[in-house]
Computed example of a mutant assay.
Amino acid sequence: MDARVLELGTLAAYVEHETERWRQWFEAAPAEVLDLPLGRGADGTIRTLVKHIFAVELRYAQRLAGSPVSGYEQLADDTVEQLWRIHRTASSVRGRYLEGATAEALNRVLVSETRKLGRIESRAHTVLVHSLIHGIRHWAQIAMVLREHGHGGLWEHDWLLNPAVQ
């Protein structure tokens, strides 16, 4: 197995642990929290940003696996369960890809037609890393929006403290 796969597996475990904690938090929170606006200069709500995080995970996992890419508009986002279903599907596809990933597979160039950036050519390894760290960045945005609306007291998100990577 390529050493990069082991590192990516560790990063994926961190993401999975954090994402599960977010699911638990949103399940316990009032439903309207998902519809909080992201703030000045930002488009959308927490719901649209969570959907964006998970859609990126799913669509890149599908590209890595050589599967048809889901249409963004077809992904249901009415409930916490529907949103996290997108993530679970993405995680499953990504996990199967990682299980069989070889150095050759990780170096393969993927061509992606993205919604906002157009055509992108990247190595599979780069796509994997992006699909994992992309969400980390956006979850930090969500945490800040929640704090601004009085929903503090979230857990520590640091890599060093995550039990999935110990």
Score class of each variant (00 low, 15 high):
Pro30Cys: 10
Glu148His: 08
Thr10Arg: 14
Trp139Met: 09
Leu38Asn: 02
Val50Gln: 00
Leu34Tyr: 03
Glu18Trp: 08
Leu154Pro: 04
Gly153Val: 12
Tyr97Gly: 04
Ala164Gln: 05
Glu32Lys: 13
Tyr97Cys: 08
Gly44Val: 04
Tyr97Leu: 08
Trp155Phe: 11
Gly9Val: 05
Leu83Pro: 02
Leu110His: 00
Trp155Asp: 15
Arg85Pro: 00
Gly44Ala: 04
Ile46Glu: 00
Ser131Thr: 14
Thr79Cys: 06
Pro68Ser: 11
Ile142Tyr: 01
Leu64Met: 10
Met144Phe: 10
Leu132Ala: 12
Glu148Gly: 04
Trp139Leu: 13
Leu83Cys: 05
Arg137Asn: 15
Ala55Arg: 03
Thr19Pro: 00
Arg4Pro: 01
Lys116Cys: 11
Glu121Ile: 01
Asp35Arg: 10
Trp84Tyr: 14
Gln74Met: 06
Leu11His: 11
His149Gln: 08
Thr89Gly: 03
Thr89Glu: 14
Glu104Tyr: 01
Arg47Leu: 04
Ser92Trp: 10
Leu83Tyr: 01
Gln24Glu: 13
Glu16Leu: 09
Ala13His: 08
Arg59Phe: 02
Thr19Lys: 02
Phe54Asp: 02
Thr45Asn: 02
Ala143Ser: 15
Leu49Gly: 02
Glu16Pro: 00
Leu146His: 04
Leu8Gln: 12
Met144Cys: 09
Gly9Thr: 10
